[in-house]
Design a protein around this nucleic acid. Structure first.
Length: 472
RNA sequence: GCGCCUCUAGCUCAAUUCGGCAGAGCAACGGACUCUUAAUCCGCAGGUUCUGGGUUCGAGUCCCAGGGGGCGUACCA
């Protein structure tokens, strides 16, 4: 074997593999065209045959066979020493073999990168989840399913953006470093800014900044971005995940429900080819309109329990205890009702369904229900037993918001490190006037899971959070 | 955090209920082959069995501690 040739600085490609396959799909067996193409990618299989050799070239779009011969292929001997996983660029005519396999004849070729490490088994690929996540760059080459999920995730993101842009929403970017964590009940990550000599928190939600923008006259805004929550990892939780939040001035929860069901159904139809998708072997149809159930109705339907905020507190407490929920002394009826719902109803709601009318006690940022005291105009969209989105008619009154914050701060003082703090700056913004506004948050990773039929959030994230590898 | 399971060659996996020489396929390496399709055939090489202790004449296997991972649970509006 001769020395490796100089690696070029660029390679001019005329076709992707898929483009070649598409353009020449009808070619009969044993035909050599006069069309020259240049393609590039990794050599994923090689079948040497003496004075001819076959290879399988894979690029981002697919696979095509390479056909090399001692007479037509320069450096044929060296070609047959390429390793599986080597990057090459190939130039040659499009042809079919006697058996009819579409191929590119290797009339010239160049090494673009060599792999110094051996690729996984060409048939079994990678099965160890840890290796798949830690070396995603390998997983992407050997696992078709992984490529499909991330291609689809990208389509979901652009589909969401396109639809919102078309409805007059403006995409914005708000700070990820917050002086006061807020916008969701979650434990934040703390970091430190040296020059400011201040602790800052990685955002748990962009909500309070986006609503400041509505105060500022941005009537329809959205942000798609990472949020960070310092909580446990599970099949459904990653410490950093992607949230879509949007706010629409002059809209209420009803408008947001319509927007949500149309947005999700539209993206599902576009990305999956149908609003009906199969998740875990069971169909789920995202076509609008989705069912609406109040929290009490959801509880009653799933468990037969007749409870509400008007139930005597002792009854709510008994109900919690029967369900195995450890009731904290600080819980009011709203928190108990929510816990009952989450334990007895939510996992059993296949949906998609909007569960509406959340207690004010557990909804510090949403506006009081126009006709049901103690409740808010908040809803969550549930699909496959899990929260897909959270939305409400926004609380606009600064005095009411202050008292909600203070209730949260009291919980915080009592040791609840997920409760919110009083955000004076946000209150000042409200004092300048927030018009009636509807808001929505969608978990993009959860949506991806639903539309890709994956059951672990790690499979919907390119690089899920893992413990640092102690062997490195 | 807690419980259960798991970790063997680059990858995928073996290694007899009950402790007895650590193996195969693919990849790699050397060779044969002008139409293969996970090519085939011949040959060669490949190991801190996650780490550290312990029991034993003898440990991949049993015990203890630690590490990684998976699942469940808790937490996560």
């Amino acid at each position: 074997m001769s020395d490796p040739p100089q690696i070029p600085y660029r390679f001019e490609r005329s076709h992707t593999v898929a483009h070649v396959v598409e353009e020449f799909s009808g070619l009969q067996a044993g035909v050599t065209t006069e069309t020259r193409v240049s393609v590039s990618g990794r050599l994923m299989l090689r079948r040497d045959q003496g004075r001819i050799a076959f290879g399988t070239l894979q690029d981002a779009s697919g696979r095509v066979q390479l056909f090399a011969t001692a007479s037509a292929t320069p450096d044929f001997e060296r070609f047959t020493t390429l390793s599986i996983g080597d990057w090459i660029g190939v130039d040659g005519v499009v042809m079919t073999t006697r058996r009819g396999e579409l191929s590119v004849r290797v009339d010239s070729w160049v090494t673009l990168a060599r792999t110094r490490r051996q690729f996984p088994d060409k048939w079994h690929g990678l099965t160890d989840p840890d290796t798949r996540y830690r070396r995603r760059y390998l997983d992407l080459w050997v696992s078709e399913e992984a490529r499909t999920v991330f291609t689809r995730r990208s389509a979901i993101l652009s589909g969401l953006r396109r639809r919102l842009d078309a409805q007059g929403f403006m995409e914005v970017e708000t700070p990820m470093l917050h002086p006061i964590p807020g916008g969701a009940a979650a434990k934040p990550f703390v970091t430190r800014h040296e020059a400011l000599d201040a602790d800052l928190y990685l955002r748990v939600a962009p909500e309070l900044y986006l609503k400041r923008l509505v105060v500022g006259g941005m009537e329809r805004v959205y942000e798609i971005g990472r949020v960070f929550r310092n909580e446990g990892l599970s099949t459904r939780h990653n410490p950093e995940f992607t949230m879509l939040e949007l706010y629409q001035a002059y809209a209420d929860h009803g408008d947001i429900m319509e927007l949500t069901e149309n947005l999700v159904a539209g993206v599902a139809g576009e990305v999956c080819g149908s609003t009906t998708v199969v998740y875990g072997g069971r169909e789920i149809d995202f076509a609008a309109p989705w069912r609406r159930l109040t929290m009490e109705q959801a509880i009653a339907e799933c468990s037969g329990l007749e409870v509400s905020l008007d139930s005597p507190p002792t009854e709510l407490r008994d109900c919690c205890e029967r369900l195995g929920i450890a009731v904290d002394a600080s819980w009011g009826p709203g928190k108990m009702l929510l816990e009952i719902y989450e334990k007895a109803a939510e996992p059993n709601l296949w949906g998609p369904v909007f569960v509406t009318d959340y207690p004010a006690e557990v909804s510090p940022l949403s506006r009081n229900h126009r006709s049901r005291p103690g409740y808010t105009e908040r809803f969550e969209g549930i699909a496959a037993g899990r929260e897909l989105c959270n939305a409400f008619t926004e609380l606009t009154d600064p005095d009411e918001q202050r008292s909600r914050f203070e209730a949260q701060a009291a919980l915080r003082a009592g040791g609840d490190d997920e409760a919110m703090a009083v955000d004076e700056d946000y209150l000042r913004a409200l004092e300048y006037g927030l018009p009636p506004t509807g808001g929505l948050g969608i978990g993009v990773d959860r949506l991806t899971m639903l539309l890709c039929d994956t059951h672990a959030i790690r499979d919907a994230l390119l690089f899920p959070t893992l413990r640092p590898d102690p062997s490195l």
